[in-house]
Design a protein around this nucleic acid. Sequence first.
RNA 1: GCCCUGGUAGCUCAGCUGGAUAGAGCAACCGCCUUCUAAGCGGUAGGUCAUGCGUUCGAAUCGCAUCCAGGGUACCA
Length: 596
Amino acid sequence: MIKDIISKNLTEAVNLALKNNELANIPDDEIQKLAIEIPKNTEFGDYAVNISGFAKFTKMPPIKIAQIISKYIKMDDAQINVVAGFINFKLGSNYLNNTIKKILEQKNDYGKITFGNHEKVNLEYISANPTGPFHIGHGRWAAMGSSLANLMEFAGYDIHQEFYINDAGNQINNLGKSLWIRVLQELGKKADFPKTEEEGAKNYYPGEYLIETAKKYLENNKEQAEKSYKLFPDALNPSDEIINEMSVFAKKEMLKKQKQLLDNFRVKFDCFYSETSLHESGEVEKTFNFLKERGEIYEKDDAQWFASSKYGDDQDRVIKKSDGSNTYLTADIAYHHDKIKRGFDRLINIWGADHHGYVPRMKAALAALGHNPDRLEVLLGQLVNIIIDGEQVRMGKRKKMLTLEELIEDVGVDATRFWMIIRSIDTTLDFDVNLAKSCSDENPVYYVQYAHARACSILRNATSERFDQETKKELAPFIESEKFNSLINSEKFDLNNLSSLWKKSDENASKATKTLILKLESFEDLILNSAKNRAPYMIARYVQELASDFHHFYAYSRVLNVEDNLMIARLSIVQAVKQVISNALNILGVSSPEFM
RNA sequence: GCCCUGGUAGCUCAGCUGGAUAGAGCAACCGCCUUCUAAGCGGUAGGUCAUGCGUUCGAAUCGCAUCCAGGGUACCA
């Protein structure tokens, strides 16, 4: 990375200046902190470093310090100039050419870094109840989570993607009870969902999606259902056996649908972890006893309490209710305990902001179990507003809602994913359905994909036969396929291919070319920063900027129909752009079309 | 009340481990298609970075207070 080269030279220069007593009193960690940045105003240079921070140690004006340091910098093929407290670097073509070489040699691996050091990370996200279709909010976690997984893999982590199935508790019974009503309705019996709170309306799922499930159930179980109905004609009071049968069937169907949708949405989990399995294996009880042995649990009001406030939670939490059953928290503690026992160095959870109060108690739980709570990282995502026709649509949870499936059908996987990722996780996302659907300038997905398709088009044309309109004759391609392939696909890219790139041509073209290559160069740095910050949205922003730089380049630099050496050089750049756009879009789980 | 996010251009948002003139996209206005994809490019205009005080050589960025918006504050999951 060019930044690393500059950084190394800079550190050496500062140390030399210190050794020669031209500077003094600068602590080592201050030198380490020097950040190479890209100036907002590129007139200053391609890279810059601000050394004003040294002023308070050396008691010298920043400009003086910058001058002294710059004297000691020995970089070939780079211009260095000092403005105020800044040392600016303007790079020569060697650096830029090497960037292209690196991309063409590393291909799909360009941008991969070893920062993560193979740390074993368990990334848990979505973790929805299997009681209905995903809503759009789940879509944000799905897109975020899978992109973050791709990103962190790229940055050198070992990522294990996990979905925790919340398949225990009353909700599953409620699901079964609701399915039974739908089944009876399908059989033509009189059966209705309760309407009022007194009748227990909130214990049912009246969403229409269970109608389909009911039909499916009846395909093979019609007689059985009729029989059950005769024994228990009251739709709201079926037997436990019926509820159980319905619950199991509904859960299985819902899960199947969820998995199918995730597959369509390019979300790949390594593991679906069932909460029920934790109860059945006795892990929940074991964890409870373990905590009890460690003295973290006490009794009050007939319930068992976890003393989470000892570990920073603002109050203690019930862990076993007075009726003897466990709370959700108990299973969740067991689950996180299990993750750590499975050998993960780090646990990352993506949770909706509505769960933020849950973070301290989960961290407290880890501490109480004897683990370092910092191993758990919770990324809190703000919620999603749906905008249709300029109006915000409220998401009623159990009423009619726009499901993720409908959205994807409407908008497409690429656009949905891109829009879900484009904003930082800290801001409430306004998802404008009309905008995401629109194939216009307003839609950044197509802007980026168009750049990729455009690059592909140029590369295609370069090796295709041509037809001359005037002479009505077939012309040879601009470059033979074989030559082109050896240019693009060889293990060792020949830097001489780029030699004619920087000969004096028009200024706009070389400026655009340089800007473009510097953007390509910054990809590795981007991976580092976005992985560090767990921020896939940075990739989405970057790839838009890259597309913009490429379109700009395209406007000023003809690739084909110029003299051969220049064509080869520019084709190499186009290929590199195509590669990097596709590497970036791959991380986001967005496709890179060859035609549009 | 307490806790978590956010408040930056007409709109949606970057920038926030303090540093050069606060950026992008869209919308508005003006231009550019007989040559590689116009789903594109160039240009113009648009700001008291919610408010106040503080820390600092220097604050959109850090601290405190206030005001707005969203979310949370269960022996639900």
